[in-house]
Design a protein around this nucleic acid. Sequence first.
RNA 1: GGCUAGGUGGCAGAGUGGUCAUGCAGCGGCCUGCAAAGCCGCGUACAGCGGUUCGAUUCCGCUCCUAGCCU
Length: 335
Amino acid sequence: MTRAAGKVAAAGAGTRRAILLMGPTGAGKSDLALRLAEALPLEIISVDSALVYRGMDIGTAKPSAAMRARVTHHLMDIRDPAESYSAGEFTRDAALAMQDIWQRGRQPLLVGGTMLYFHALSHGIAKLPAANAEVRAQIERQAELSGWAALHRDLERVDPAAAARIHVNDPQRIQRALEVYRLTGKTITTLQQKRMSVFTDVDVTEFIFSPLERGELHTRIELRFGAMLRAGLVAEVRTLYERSDLTAEHPSMRAVGYRQLWRHLAGQSSLDEAVTQAIAATRQLAKRQLTWARRREHAQWSDSMHPEVAGMMIGALLKGGFSARSDVTPQGSLC
RNA sequence: GGCUAGGUGGCAGAGUGGUCAUGCAGCGGCCUGCAAAGCCGCGUACAGCGGUUCGAUUCCGCUCCUAGCCU
């Protein structure tokens, strides 16, 4: 359980605080984060499953080197695209980064659009075995032979609760539940009972940053993808495509934009089709992110189309107990 | 002007005298180690007007529109 923002009255020097800045892709979270971090003693922790990958810069709208030189960013470029990353690893890495930031007398600003990661941070995540390639391959082989419905029935036998909650057509989750059971001998339902939020005893302030009108978000998404193409996105994907160790199945290559362009490079679609599909996939991603966002009870929504949001947020944070940076004059940051 | 073929939901595209096409897009939702992933749900649409019929998107007539051909 996390508590609402700004409830802790005085700003004790030892108070551990965290700011969460979430929102759909394309809202402009990174730029806003930079402004906040330049006004307050913050360091940015990226909460984004795609920004972890090195060499995926344009399509992920990764903050530029110049931006990263101005404010410390954590959890970006920590994986090769051939590797995978997970909510569990993220939760652990983010907890370590926050610890480190607090120890240095600063506060973390967690920014991103991977809502499951935010969810895992706030609600905790159970200690489960990591993904196991062998077991997954074994399960996949079985699925090819007898079908996922049969595996769902297997799951029903060992873990009826999980089978009831996982849809028969959801291979990803059937596989995970079975994998955990085969690896530990315990059901995923049992193992998921225990979880603890990393925000225990942390004063959390959450913002959701998004255009309040869907049409505006769609327009931004389309314009931004056009800009990515002009910035050389196709060449970026081609570099990855030409690596002999990457395939369309790698989690990194299933990211929006990369997946569609990969298909085009593989000769499966024209560039025009790929672009149309990538933009649609981005809109769909944004929609899912907003579905998560609506469930965040303690979040304050801010209209990303409003020119003064940054100033208003900084004002709210100062009132909520944050101190201004002592090494920087905040003029320009406040309105 | 004449002939022919057509006009189906935002788009593509089947089909039937009296349940449902489907795909894409869109919208809503689910979500605990692949999450920028995976999954679930949602659409009286049948150009218009008459007629036949117990009943018409489907049959008939007229009108309008589109495409091709002809004079």
